Computed example of a mutant assay.
Amino acid sequence: MIKNDLITLIEKKRAELIKVANSNGLTSTVAIRYSQELDHLINEYYRQHLNHVSSSRY
């Protein structure tokens, strides 16, 4: 996945999480699911970023 696509998905998921958390609470099932999805996207972003940084050093 392209870095800019991941950033867009992260921003979209973050906005969705805020909206759901405001209406249903942070501990609602849907807010937890969105939070986990956001975590997954952020982890993928950092995995790609770290791989890029590591490979550019050598």
Rank of each mutant, 00 (worst) to 15 (best):
R47H: 06
I10P: 01
I10R: 02
H40Y: 14
T29I: 13
L38N: 09
A15D: 13
L38M: 11
E11W: 05
Y34M: 13
T8K: 15
T8G: 13
K13M: 07
I42L: 07
K19I: 07
E37K: 06
R14V: 01
L9C: 11
K13T: 11
Q36W: 08
Y34K: 15
E11N: 13
N24Y: 05
L9I: 09
A31I: 06
E37L: 06
N43E: 07
I18C: 06
L26F: 13
N43C: 03
R14S: 06
N43L: 07
I32K: 01
K13P: 02
T29C: 08
T27M: 14
N4Q: 14
E16R: 09
D5A: 13
V20D: 00
E11V: 08
S35A: 10
D5S: 14
A21K: 04
N43S: 08
L9M: 14
N43R: 05
I32G: 05
R33H: 12
A31M: 11
E44F: 06
L38K: 09
R33D: 13
Y46G: 03
V30N: 11
V30F: 10
E44M: 15
G25L: 06
V20T: 10
L6M: 12
M1R: 08
R33T: 13
A31K: 02
E44K: 13
Y46S: 01
N22E: 11
R14G: 06
S35D: 09
R33K: 14
T29E: 12
Y45E: 03
L26Q: 11
A31R: 04
I42F: 00
M1P: 00
V30Y: 11
K13E: 08
K3I: 11
E37D: 14
M1H: 05
L9K: 14
E44W: 00
H40W: 11
A15F: 08
N43D: 06
I42S: 02
R47K: 10
N24F: 02
L9P: 04
H40M: 15
K19C: 04
V20L: 02
K12A: 07
K19G: 01
A15E: 10
K3F: 10
A21M: 05
T29Q: 15
M1E: 10
I32E: 04
R47L: 05
N43Q: 10
N24R: 08
N4D: 14
K13W: 03
K13G: 03
T29S: 12
N24G: 00
N22W: 04
D5Q: 13
M1I: 05
A31P: 04
